[in-house]
Each structure stands twice: as structure tokens, then as C-alpha cells.
């Protein structure tokens, strides 16, 4: 900008500079506030935020079977594990896990990845996890991989029978969504 020099005594240069600065700051603040609605509108709208829960009847799921349910547009795996699969998950040494956190939204964030912290409370045969690979979002294949859980076909992440990452590029265990039992054979996810 061309510098315009006012030599008029009536204009105190200090006051002028302050006026220019104040105006510039005011304009910048306004631009910031104006930008927010344009950014915020891309966040989930009120209807999406309210759509939270899905109910599932577990009576239909036989032992060893994995079903996938849509919740918030993503698959949730519900696995009725066999005794052997539960035992296998329980005996894993937590020290050798790449991700030692439970990743369970129903527990405090510092809970460890023990099978008890992954499975349904008091009903250890039930494992409920979000069926989205924590690497780049593909859907892992059930009952596959080297650890008896899931294998993600995209980049070869192996999960065990508690949905914990064991080998491959995924950084975290499969997430456990918020859910609760409603009666003996019904859960509500979300």
C-alpha cells in the first residue's frame, strides 16, 4: 500500500496509527467470526447427532457366529465367542500387545487391554467392536488372520479373538462402542 503521509498538524500521527490498527484488528476479528458458520455447517447436523442408538436381539446369534449391524453408518461386529476363543484371548500376555489400551468407550480411557476389559461385562462370550480397521478404515474379515480374529484385507492387519491388533500397520485395537444390555438377550448400541 502506498504510504500516505499526512503532514497536517491536526492529525496526530500516534492517534492515526492507533485508529488504523484498531480498524484492522476489528476487521480481522469480524472475518474470523464470519468464517465460523461456513466451517461449522460441515459438522454433523442436529439430526445426525441425535441418531445414536441401534437395538440388537442377541437370541438369533449362535455360538461362534459373528453378525454385523449398522450403527451410525458403520458396521458393528457382534461375536458370540466359543469357550476356546475366549480362553485364547485371555491367555495372551498383555506385554506383547502393540496397543495396551482397552479402547472401550464404556470404561475409563486408562483401562488395559485385558480380555475382561474388551468383552461384555459379566457375559464374556460376547464381544462387541466397531468393524472398522484402525489403520485406514477398511472393514476386516471375520474369522480370518493368524490370530483367530479378524484380518483386514486392505493392508494386512491381524486382530485376535478379543479384537486386539497383533500384527500389521493398524495402530489400535478395534474400538468397543458404547453399548448396554437391555435384559438378557438384547443390547442397545449407542
Amino acid at each position: 500500500m502506498r504510504r500516505v503521509t499526512a503532514t497536517d498538524d491536526a492529525h496526530d500521527p500516534g492517534r492515526r496509527d492507533f485508529l488504523f490498527l484498531a480498524t484492522g484488528a476489528w476487521a480481522a476479528a469480524g472475518a474470523g467470526f464470519l468464517a465460523w458458520p461456513f466451517i461449522s455447517q460441515m459438522n454433523p447436523d442436529a439430526a445426525s447427532l441425535a441418531l445414536g442408538s441401534t437395538e440388537v436381539d442377541l437370541g438369533q446369534i449362535s455360538e461362534g457366529q459373528v453378525v454385523s449391524i449398522k450403527w451410525r453408518g458403520k458396521p458393528v461386529f457382534i461375536w458370540n465367542r466359543t469357550k476356546a476363543q475366549v480362553e485364547e484371548a485371555k491367555k495372551v500376555d498383555l506385554g506383547q500387545l502393540p496397543d495396551k489400551s482397552a479402547r472401550n468407550e464404556n470404561l475409563p480411557s486408562d483401562a488395559d487391554a485385558a480380555d475382561a476389559n474388551r468383552a461384555a461385562p459379566g457375559k464374556e462370550n460376547w464381544l462387541v467392536v466397531v468393524g472398522v480397521c484402525t489403520h485406514l478404515g477398511c472393514i476386516p474379515l471375520s474369522n480370518s488372520g493368524d490370530f483367530g480374529g479378524w484380518l483386514c484385507p486392505c493392508h494386512g492387519s491381524h486382530y485376535d479373538s478379543a479384537g486386539r491388533i497383533r500384527r500389521g500397520p493398524a495402530p489400535e485395537n478395534l474400538h468397543v462402542p458404547p453399548y448396554a444390555f437391555e435384559g438378557d438377550s438384547k443390547i442397545k448400541i449407542g
Partner: peptide, 20 residues
Amino acid sequence: FLIVFAGLLFYVKKSVWSGW
């Protein structure tokens, strides 16, 4: 916000034009 902004800008404009 806008009324204050208009006032500020008006004085900036006046100040700059009076220096011409």
C-alpha cells in the same frame, strides 16, 4: 459489530483523504 466497524472505517477514510 458492523456499526462500530462502519464508524472506524469512516474515520480512517476521512483521515486518509484529508491527507491527500
